[in-house]
């Protein structure tokens, strides 16, 4: 076996992604609060469960924040253990909003854990609306935010640790498209130079891309089950991805349907070019027009500052590169075994 530089790079990057992607901790965050419904004019004890937090080892501050920016600070905090504490608030009689029901965010802050937010989860109801009184009772002072120095991944509600799946699920799709692109390059080369080896290369790359696509669908389905609650949603991007898989199954069927090798190569090469052109609007254009749960579609921002921060990017880009290299490697293996089998068959004759 020749271990050329890109195979080594693939191994090193895969190892890097697996190790760093799994070992790096999440930022501390708030997992759960209870109760989730309170009334104004009382002293409420809110139980806060944290994730990856160190409540015991540093001084904690907690706030309730209204959507208008006004907030109140907890008067007392009882730390139970590192992941649980009880904060008691004197909730004033009136809210600083003109609605009778308001969703408050819970903010905890400490020097060691930095600041973490549970956005708009605590529902508070008031009996009568008194906007000016509410504004007087709540303060507008910004809480002291602490940054966190340690290298860690962002904490997102509902996602939690599965944010690491970005490296293993999303990069599969990137690798699939890279492989399809390379195979289309080989198909076009075949159409101009009529060298059957080019067509075989394209065929092996398409097969590997289909493997990646099927794996992407399955892993995506598992991820969806534990974030959105179902194996399969009617999300447009899912359906479009499944459709593009269907198009490439059509490619396999066409190849199986033609006997004459030259004709097979010619027609499947042109179908391959056509298929990629048909898939691009399916995955990149149509999902942007309708609602979608995926980032980058239907008004959701693309991998912008919301979804990806620098700590994720440092693992995500190597993951994409390593999966692309792995795909090339796998398809090269298939290609070489194809060539060998044809050689041995011709030697028999």
């Amino acid at each position: 076996m020749q271990l050329s530089w890109w195979k080594l790079l693939c191994i090193v990057l895969l190892a890097y992604v697996l190790v760093i992607g799994l070992v790096t901790p999440l930022k501390p965050g708030i997992l759960k609060i209870s109760p989730e419904r309170i009334k104004t004019g009382q002293t409420v004890d809110i139980e806060i469960s944290g994730y990856n937090t160190h409540y015991k080892s540093s001084n904690q501050v907690a706030y309730l924040k209204a959507s208008t920016g006004y907030l109140i600070q907890a008067k007392e905090i009882k730390v139970i253990d590192d992941n649980n504490m009880v904060a008691s608030f004197d909730v004033p009689q009136f809210l600083p909003t003109s609605n009778s029901i308001e969703q408050l965010s819970v903010i905890t802050s400490s020097e060691k854990d930095g600041s973490s937010v549970m956005p708009s989860r605590l529902i508070v109801a008031q009996d009568s609306v008194q906007l000016e009184m509410g504004k007087n009772l709540w303060s507008i002072k910004e809480p002291t935010f602490f940054g966190i120095k340690k290298y860690s991944f962002p904490f997102r509600n509902i996602l939690y640790e599965t944010i690491r799946n970005t490296f293993f699920h999303v990069s599969l799709w990137f690798a699939m498209f890279a492989l399809l692109g390379i195979s289309v390059y080989h198909s076009i080369r075949y159409l101009y130079k009529s060298d059957l080896l080019d067509d075989w290369k394209a065929y092996s790359q398409v097969r590997t891309a289909i493997l990646f696509g099927v794996l992407g669908l399955i892993t995506g389905s598992i991820w969806a089950k534990y974030t959105w609650g179902t194996w399969w949603t009617n999300d447009i991007k899912l359906n479009m991805a499944a459709l593009s898989m269907l198009i490439y199954f059509g490619y396999l069927i066409i190849r199986a349907g033609i006997e004459d090798p030259d004709k097979k190569a010619r027609i499947s090469a042109s179908f391959n070019v056509f298929a990629l052109v048909a898939v691009i609007p399916l995955i990149f254009v149509l999902p942007r027009l309708t609602d979608s749960l995926h980032p980058g579609n239907g008004g959701n921002p693309a991998f912008g500052s919301e979804d990806m921060d620098n700590s994720l990017r440092m693992v995500f880009y190597p993951a994409v590169i390593s999966f692309i290299l792995l795909g090339i490697w796998l398809s090269q293996l298939v290609f070489r075994s194809d060539v060998l089998s044809h050689k041995s068959e011709s030697a028999e004759i």
Partner: peptide, 23 residues
């Protein structure tokens, strides 16, 4: 045109067109 080059098979044709015509 593709289909006339393969065995002329209508089912194959639908398999090919159906996903492509979806957009």
């Amino acid at each position: 045109l593709l289909n006339s080059n393969i065995r002329n098979n209508t089912i194959l044709l639908t398999v090919i067109i159906l996903p492509i015509s979806f957009p």
